[in-house]
Structure formats: C-alpha cells, structure tokens
C-alpha cells in the first residue's frame, strides 16, 4: 500500500515507528498511519471508522517528547516513535492486568472466550496472571432484552458500544455514568434496562463489544474450541477487527 500513497503528493509526510519509516496524510493519527502501513500498535478502545477515544491506553507509545496515545495523537512529520519495545509491552501488560482485576473476568465461564480481544491482548502480551489483588466489584447484569445480554462484570469501559450506537446506528443507547472506579455502563432508557431501549440485534452496538459484556443471546459456545477467532488468529493481525462483527452476526438475525 505504501507505493500508492507514495505516489500521492498531497500533504504527504513520514514518521518513524521503531525505526521504520511510515507515510501519513494530514489529519491522520499515529494509529491511522501505523495500521495503514501494516504496523500493529496494540489497541482496545480504538476501531477504525469511530471517533478515537483514548481511554484504554493500550496504544501508549513513546514519542521524542514523552508518552502519547497513538489512537488520538496526530502524526507529525519527523516524529520518532517507539512502539514494540519490551518496556512498552511491559507497561501494556500491566494496564491489561488492571483491566482484568477491576472487572470480574472468569474466562472459562464466558461465552466470549476465544473471541475476546481483551483475552487475546493478554495472550499477545504474555500475561500469565492478574498480578494485582482483584477488586471483586459487584456489577449488574441486564438480561431484560429478548435477544441481547449485558454483563457489566466484563465491561472494560472502552465506549466502543457508546460510539457505535451514536455514530453508526444513529441511536444513543449507551453511556458511561459514575466517577473513578465506580464508572459503569448505563443504558439510555426510561427504566435503565436494555429491553426499554431501542437497541436491536442488527445494530453495530450489539456486536462491537471487544469483550463478553454485550452478547447476542442463544449464540454462546457455537464455535468449537480450536476454531474460534483467537484460536486461529493473533490479535496483532491487522484488519482482524473488521472480520469480528461479521463473524458473530448470524444471517437469521
């Protein structure tokens, strides 16, 4: 792909990531440029096509002038970026551990197991345990909707569903409420329950959750172990996220 952008003279410039020169177009973030060039920068709260958010901090990189979130930081000509370094991956592993211990992630009993981006990220970073004392927070499950399930125990507050609902579905089904460690996902409906919201199975928001917090009912454990997304793929394969929603979405929905 770099050949056709190189022929393109408009506002063309380059940054380097781990020494590799990468072109970017005006307005692109470091993440945009990296993904377009096939360079993986770990990310959980980012999805191409949705407004960058910058909350998970998996995408932290070091620029000459300090730490930056690749998904929100504009690419600037001449930036020298460290990305795939042992030190940064250690930081990312710690951040991933934080996400695990603040929620209640019991993978063996989770329908998302094997298709979960958080779990795949943990594998990618070589995480063997949660390391920190678990918070054992009590979080509410909302099973009110006929076809969609919301299990807040596994929510990592990435706001992908919030953005997908607003920006793609043209609805406003989800929001985050509360402060600090009490932050939690809420549903925009009179009762606060999913059943009274206008969420539908065909919405992007119903499928975009990277973890097992928003699930389509009656489709758990359909794919045998060994053939699930991350049995076959690594989280670091570029473009993989595009296949996930279509993969989960069933023709009869």
């Amino acid at each position: 792909m770099s050949t056709d952008t190189k022929q393109n003279p408009i506002a063309q410039n380059t940054i380097t990531i781990d020494g590799q020169e990468i072109p970017f177009l005006a307005g692109q973030t470091i993440m945009d440029a990296a993904l377009a060039a096939g360079v993986y920068i770990p990310h959980l709260c980012h999805r191409q096509g949705l407004t960058p958010h910058g909350s998970c901090k998996l995408c932290v990189v070091d620029t000459g002038s300090g730490s930056a979130s690749a998904c929100t930081m504009p690419a600037v000509a001449g930036q020298r970026i460290s990305n795939n370094t042992p030190a940064l991956n250690e930081v990312r592993k710690t951040i991933t551990q934080m996400l695990f211990i603040e929620g209640n992630h019991i993978c063996p009993s989770c329908e998302k197991c094997g298709d979960c981006t958080l779990q795949a990220m943990a594998y990618h970073l070589g995480m063997l345990d949660g390391h920190f004392p678990q918070f054992f927070q009590r979080r509410e499950v909302d099973a009110s909707h006929p076809t969609i399930m919301l299990d807040r125990d596994r929510c990592i507050l990435c706001e992908l569903c919030v953005r997908a609902s607003r920006e793609v579905d043209g609805k406003n089904v989800f929001a985050i409420a509360g402060r600090g460690i009490n932050a939690h996902l809420v549903v925009n409906s009179v009762s606060g329950k999913l059943v009274d919201s206008d969420l539908e199975t065909s919405d992007m928001a119903a499928h975009i959750c990277p973890v097992g917090a928003i699930l389509i009912k009656e489709h758990g454990y359909e794919v045998p172990i060994g053939q699930r997304t991350f049995d076959l793929h690594q989280v670091s394969e570029i473009g993989l996220e595009k296949t996930i929603p279509t993969k989960v979405r069933q023709p009869d929905e």
């Binding site: 695990f100 209640n104 992630h105 019991i106 993978c107 063996p108 009993s109 063997l128 345990d129 949660g130 678990q134 054992f136 009590r138 125990d153």
Partner: peptide, 18 residues
Amino acid sequence: IAVGACAINGGVPAMRNH
C-alpha cells in the same frame, strides 16, 4: 506454581464473590 484458572484468579468458584 499456581496451576489453572482457579488458582490464578479464583476461577469458577470465585463466581460466588458476587
């Protein structure tokens, strides 16, 4: 050595922590 999900994060038995 902590072996298995339960030793490492409580696993399925820890679902009672709710």
